[in-house]
């Protein structure tokens, strides 16, 4: 490790050792890049963590909101805040739900400490329907106001969106009929619709608009 990195590493380690936060985890990769990981116990600790990271001259790289499992209806959301301090990447993770009731918790804005958190927080507010406390500019970033917050956590299959399922049902009906099997549920759908009979009237040929001259 270079001297500068050693100093930064020691400074981070010593600063966080003096707090009540859980201990940091350190990892490295094949290129000798160093990563620090901090897991907060609840969102109320975020402000304090942001304050410390600002004092360490951290740069906010980005913020990632995510659900802890694949279920669309997952209530267990969490946020990972990614910082760079010198050449070290520092990730702060916090679960934003009550551990017993699974009810979502609001998250304090870190924009007073990191100005570029503005767009990141606005993005996860609309994409994940996360409540932010004291955001200076809480308007939509990408999504139109008319769309529900959190809509991007739902997968709407393209076939459903364009009514492709209707075509699939019709195709299945045609194939079943060809095979000589018509299930009860399809019989009603296959019956010809009853139309009101309209007596055909013989239409007269339209008269020319201009009278022919003799």
């Amino acid at each position: 490790m270079s001297q500068t990195r050693n100093n930064v590493f020691d400074e981070i380690k010593n600063t966080f050792a003096q707090t009540d936060f859980p201990p940091l985890t350190w990892t490295t990769n094949n290129y000798n890049n160093l990563y620090a990981w901090l897991k907060l116990e609840n969102p109320s600790q975020l402000t304090e963590a942001a304050k410390i990271l600002q004092s360490l001259q951290a740069r906010l790289c980005t913020i990632t909101a995510y659900t802890e499992d694949r279920s669309n209806a997952a209530k267990q959301k969490a946020i990972a805040y990614h910082f760079a301090i010198h050449d070290i990447l520092f990730c702060v993770t916090v679960q934003i739900y009550d551990k017993e009731t699974l009810e979502p918790l609001a998250v304090p804005s870190i924009t007073p400490y990191f100005r570029n958190a503005d767009w990141n927080e606005r993005e996860f507010m609309e994409m994940y329907n996360i409540k932010i406390i004291d955001h200076p500019n809480p308007k939509r970033l990408f999504l139109d106001e008319r769309l529900d917050a959190g809509i991007m956590t739902q997968l709407i299959p393209f076939s459903s969106m364009v009514h492709g399922t209707g075509s699939r049902n019709l195709w299945e009906q045609v194939m079943l009929e060809k095979m000589g099997y018509v299930p009860e549920s399809y019989k009603a759908a296959l019956q010809e619709p009853e139309f009101t009979k309209v007596e055909e009237t013989k239409k007269e040929a339209p008269k020319p608009q201009t009278e022919e001259k003799e």
Binding site: Y35, C61, T64, Y66, T67, R70, A80, H82
Partner: peptide, 30 residues
């Protein structure tokens, strides 16, 4: 895991979160 590189416009950042399946649980890039 996190990773970053210097793209033509500057630092490109990726974060991946996995659950042991063959698809990422979350993939974020900035």
């Amino acid at each position: 895991a996190m990773a970053r590189s210097e793209a033509p416009r500057g630092e490109l950042f990726y974060y991946v979160r996995t659950d042991g399946t063959d698809m990422p649980l979350r993939l974020k890039w900035r």
